Simulated scan of single mutants.
Amino acid sequence: MAPTRQTRSAQRRPTLRDVARRAGVSTSTASLVFSGKGPVAQATAQRVRDAASALSYAGPDPLASSLRQGRVGTVAVVVEGPLRYAFHDPFALAILDGLAEELDVAGRSMLLIAQPLDDPDRAVAQLATQAVDAAVFPLCGHRDNPVVDHLLARGVPLVGSGAPIHPQVAHVLTDEFAAMRLTTQHVLDLGHERVAHLSMMLRAHSPTGVVTDADVATATYPDAVGRLAGFRSLAGPSAPVVQACDLTVEAGEAAARLLLDVPEDQRPTAIVTQADLLAAGVVRAAESMGLRVPEDLTVTGFDGVDLPWLGHVLTTVDQPGAEKGRRMGRLVRLALEGRPVADETYPVTLRIGTTSAPPPA
């Protein structure tokens, strides 16, 4: 007779996450107890061990111990949110492509880890049973990430592109503040006075809407915060700012309408955005409302990706994604060779396209 759903559930092997939940601690804390390398209070550690005993949990997969014996040829690549979002973003794909190219030269493969925004500890539980030589956080992410403490406790080298922020994570850094000033200054030099800003999400699950001081104060995405600060340093604190609920053309279009669907004398003549996909959404919104780009509205982006279907060449901050990925891969290689690694600055440039022009007379 086929096993019932209840029987199959009862036979499921308990996980580190199950132990953490039963003990009333985070998954990363439970991981530190098993690794024996973390400063965990004795009473807390005992609760974790008692929970493990009650669940018949024997500990993480023994394969993880191979990290202390030698290399396994795998690098974890942690992507916040569903992987399909990264696969729909041409800039993210370029970064992953460059990273894969460099790791392939080093004879190492990538293990993609999708980290849910509403349950980041799930990635800790997933990594607890995986042997990896290093880990990379290649895309936009939160300032803090529970994966960091778990992997550092195992002695795994970590590389990122600006987040998570931790002294033991080596980054390939874009100066977001200075980079956003490039497009903002370009727009101001053209003579625009009514200038607005379209931001990426400042924190997870942010709705499309006008950005408030509270939004900025509680923001968790360092790249979005840095770009917003760069814009405001030139355009001023009173310039209109909205944020999109997602990094997609559709989200950019919806956010742009909040700025454009106003009386003509209040409508911005230029919108500076934090991403090329959002800028494409602004172009769509403007043209659907009968506005010409750039004659009636200047639009700028950020990233420098190729959007041949847009019908315009964006004026944007150009930061070649594939090369950024390769640089992160090189930091991984250096770390695995036992050589010291440190943050390195990634240069960007202003690329003037066909979407910027002086304001209408």
Rank of each mutant, 00 (worst) to 15 (best):
E253W: 12
V172P: 01
S199Y: 10
L258N: 15
T184R: 05
P263Q: 10
H197C: 09
P240Y: 03
V195N: 08
T269I: 04
R181F: 02
V241S: 06
S199N: 06
A256C: 14
V187D: 03
D246C: 02
V225M: 03
P263I: 04
D175N: 05
A214W: 05
L202V: 00
Q185M: 07
T174S: 03
P167N: 02
A229E: 11
V242I: 13
G230P: 01
L173K: 05
R257L: 15
L202I: 09
A270M: 03
G230M: 00
A235S: 02
A256G: 15
M201S: 09
T212P: 13
L260Y: 11
L198G: 05
A229N: 05
L152M: 06
I165M: 12
P263E: 08
Q168A: 13
D246R: 11
G191Q: 09
S161H: 12
G160Y: 06
R257Y: 12
Y221D: 12
A254K: 15
F177P: 00
S161W: 09
L158G: 07
P207Y: 01
L260A: 14
L202Q: 13
L190M: 00
S233Q: 05
A163T: 12
A170W: 09
G209A: 00
R257Q: 14
Q243W: 01
F231E: 03
P263G: 06
L198K: 06
A239Y: 10
E253S: 15
L182F: 10
G230C: 13
A214T: 15
G230T: 07
